[in-house]
Design a binder for these strands. Structure first.
Length: 214
DNA sequence: AAGAGTCTCAACCGCTAGTTT
DNA sequence: CAAACTAGCGGTTGAGACTCT
């Protein structure tokens, strides 16, 4: 049979942590480290479940956490990363040592999202966001059709360079001149008679608008 | 001053992939 | 191999802080 449950939920404390609980958890982890979160509350003398202890430690008590507000530069980087990774907060947080996924998610939901009016940052239902071929190049947005396009036959991923404007808007850099066949997206856009002239920068909304005209 | 509305963020919930028995 | 569990993730909630009228 399987293993023992992580905790007996009956009698477990919930809600805001007290300073005393924090102290107990910090002392225990500093002295013993963490080998199994299930055992931490028991050994540390806490009436909390292991999951709650893990969350409290990773999001608030870890000594390597940065407690200062997220800077403008970090925010710009978050916007760039979100545009190609989507809501993969832990992945985005991995680019910011000392920041937690919860912190970045909260910052996004309460500040950035409102400012940017974001519906266009999500791919259409037919596409999904994917990692770029080069993880060190955050200036490329990537998405892939979920199924092969019945009309064009394309099922290759789309890679689009982009930039953040001063207004905080995502602009895709689309070269619609003669040499536009390197990706299916650019090829399709060139084929659209209503697409703006060459060297255009367009919004993600516009990309799918023009794409849908085909 | 106080009540209402809004914002922030810590904490919880539910799910999934991977692990253990 | 199946069942039960753990750790980690993203979505959501709600209490307290803050701002507005």
């Amino acid at each position: 049979m399987g293993r023992q449950p992580c905790c007996d939920k009956a009698g477990m404390r919930r809600g805001t942590w007290t300073a005393e609980e924090d102290q107990k958890l910090v002392n225990f982890i500093i002295n013993n480290g963490v080998h199994c979160w299930r055992l931490v509350p028991k050994l540390a003398g806490l009436m909390r479940c292991g999951k709650s202890c893990r969350l409290r430690w990773t999001n608030y008590l870890r000594p390597d956490l940065r407690r200062e507000a997220i800077s403008q530069e970090e925010e710009t980087q978050i916007i760039q990363l979100h545009s190609r990774l989507g809501n993969r907060w832990s992945k985005i947080a991995s680019y910011f040592p000392g920041r937690t996924d919860n912190e970045i998610k909260n910052h996004w939901n309460t500040r950035i999202k409102k400012r940017l009016n974001l519906p266009g940052l999500n791919p259409p239902a037919t596409h999904e966001l994917i990692d770029p071929p080069n993880a060190n190049n955050p200036e490329t947005i990537g998405m892939k059709p979920k199924q092969e396009d019945k009309i064009s036959g394309f099922d290759r991923p789309i890679w689009m360079p982009f930039e953040i404007t001063n207004a905080g808007e995502i602009r895709l850099q689309v070269n619609s001149s003669g040499s536009c066949s390197s990706s299916s997206a650019q090829h399709s856009l060139c084929a659209s008679s209503s697409f703006p002239s060459s060297e255009a920068t367009i919004s993600l909304d516009d990309l799918f608008f023009y794409g849908n005209l085909l």
